[in-house]
Design a binder for these strands. Structure first.
Length: 139
DNA sequence: GCCAACGTTGGC
DNA sequence: GCCAACGTTGGC
């Protein structure tokens, strides 16, 4: 079981919209970056991910679960692009801000800190536990 | 809204 | 296969 982080601009697709999709979830389409796509191809059903609000918000707001493994992205005919479906699991009691993450030495190696532009990224077990604690929930 | 950092494209 | 030009992302 692996952990991930999904970025979205809340003006385009936010946590509230994700939550409204319920257990059915929603396709994480529109990704046009090979590294991000490869990360999605590596995902298994049941893997968990953080839901991060980029550009505005700049915080992790909740947890999603991969509910459908990699398949062709319906937002394009280009066969290069695949994506997974994710569903909302639970919100953080307290969102964890980028500033908080940057200030925490335990999180200094996070991809979020070191490769800000990658929109779908891996998260280590340790980072997962640390951030869940900061968010006020059990991992 | 700006712009630095990064990824992609395409001419050579 | 290099690299300049261009487009996009995302923090500030």
């Amino acid at each position: 079981m692996a952990y991930w982080l999904f970025k979205s601009e809340p003006d385009v697709w936010g946590w509230d919209q994700q939550t409204a999709k319920g257990a059915v979830g929603e396709e994480w389409g529109g990704v046009r970056n090979y590294q991000a796509r490869n990360n999605m191809r590596a995902m298994k059903t049941g893997d968990l991910g953080f839901f991060y609000h980029s550009r505005t918000g700049l915080e992790i707001v909740g947890i999603v679960e991969v509910c459908t493994e990699s398949h062709p992205d319906s937002t394009t005919d280009d066969p290069r692009w695949d994506c997974v479906d994710v569903r909302a699991v639970r919100p953080f009691v307290k969102p964890v801000s980028l500033a908080q993450i940057k200030a925490d030495l335990r999180l200094k190696d996070m991809v979020l800190v070191n490769n800000a532009r990658l929109s779908v990224q891996p998260v280590t077990d340790t980072e997962w536990k640390t951030i869940c604690a900061l968010g006020g929930i059990e991992p």
